[in-house]
């Protein structure tokens, strides 16, 4: 991923290298090296360190952001600051003749302009982040922690849901309100994996996660619970409303004609769901255990009912 952004910013990388090389070579051509004993090592450590830090910031900006306007602004601001730092650093080694002393007097200008540009860039970044936040609604509430996202579906994981449940339970107790949880389970997911491969299984979960997000309201939170099981938190919602919404999700998934790779054959995945409403008397562990138990019962009933049709399991004597 970082490699991808690096190549998409390859012009900026070229500009960065070109600028740094030009400045270093100009300084070396027009100046002359100082004697070893007149070099202030403390200054070199301090200024060299700052220069390196800003260089690292530029690298992180380039590898973590896609190409675009805000990236260019951020890059320009950082680059100008870096130029000042570099000039300052080179001063420590190199002495300029009187007619070339303009080279040191200009050294603080780029940083000043750079700071202004970065401020502007961060202002733009704020608007960009607001747009991204609206894209993230239904998958995130109040708190961001990238280490809790699930690799396969890009939803948050069960750990995040537990944090939010704790928060919601406190909220519900304080305001005497209520909330509901929907649990969803993809039916026969293991069979799907065995037939189409585990990579396809992961893709299917990703598609179902997207459908799930489309069918819940703003303010709801969807997370991947574990394996083929999802969980949705619906604040201020009664079980009846939650049941309607889970019905919508079930219908949406039932109409998903999933294509495995290049094949045009459609696979219609099915999900089971269960709903519970809570007032905040139980702990989040109890709530989750109870909901999972309910889910197992729902699943057991649906599969046992079907296996009665396809195959009768009769006990035989030893």
């Amino acid at each position: 991923m970082s490699h991808y952004f690096f190549t998409s910013n390859k012009y900026l990388v070229a500009i960065l290298l070109f600028t740094l090389v030009t400045i270093c070579s100009t300084a070396i051509t027009i100046g002359e090296f100082k004697a070893i004993n007149s070099i202030a090592w403390v200054d070199i450590i301090g200024e060299g360190g700052m220069m390196l830090m800003i260089f690292t910031w530029i690298v992180f900006t380039l590898i973590s952001r896609p190409a675009g306007r805000v990236t260019t602004w951020l890059f320009t601001g950082l680059l100008l600051t870096e130029i000042s730092m570099l000039l300052d650093f080179l001063d420590e080694f190199i002495h300029y003749a009187a007619h070339n002393s303009w080279f040191t007097t200009v050294e603080s200008f780029p940083a000043a302009i750079g700071m202004v540009l970065m401020t502007f860039a961060l202002y733009q970044l704020h608007f960009e982040q607001q747009t991204i936040n609206t894209q993230l609604r239904r998958t995130e509430r109040y708190y961001r922690e990238h280490s809790l996202t699930d690799f396969v579906t890009q939803l948050y994981s069960a750990q995040y849901m537990k944090q939010q449940l704790k928060y919601e339970l406190n909220h519900v107790k304080a305001h005497h309100s209520t909330f509901s949880l929907i649990m969803l389970d993809v039916r026969k997911f293991n069979d799907f994996n065995q037939r189409f491969g585990y990579a396809q299984g992961d893709f299917l979960l990703g598609e179902i996660a997207k459908l799930l997000l489309m069918n819940i309201r703003d303010g709801d939170l969807a997370c991947r619970y574990a394996s083929d099981r999802f969980i949705v938190l619906l604040p201020n919602t009664t079980a009846n409303v939650a049941r309607v919404i889970s019905g919508h999700i079930e219908q949406a998934v039932a109409h998903l004609a999933y294509k495995s790779g290049d094949s045009s054959t459609a696979i219609y995945p099915k999900i089971s769901s269960c709903v519970n409403q809570y007032q905040g008397q139980q702990s989040y562990q109890e709530i989750l255990a109870q909901l999972n138990h309910k889910m197992s019962v729902v699943k057991y009933e649906s599969t046992a009912a079907r296996s009665d049709v396809t195959c009768t399991n009769v006990p035989v004597s030893n």
Binding site: A158, Q159, D185, Y225, A226, S227, D228, R229, Q285, L288, A289, N292, H293, S296
Partner: peptide, 13 residues
């Protein structure tokens, strides 16, 4: 363990 959900989903309740 912390990841009790994996037990619940994979092994039943």
């Amino acid at each position: 363990p912390d990841y009790i959900e994996q037990y619940q989903v994979n092994l039943g309740s």
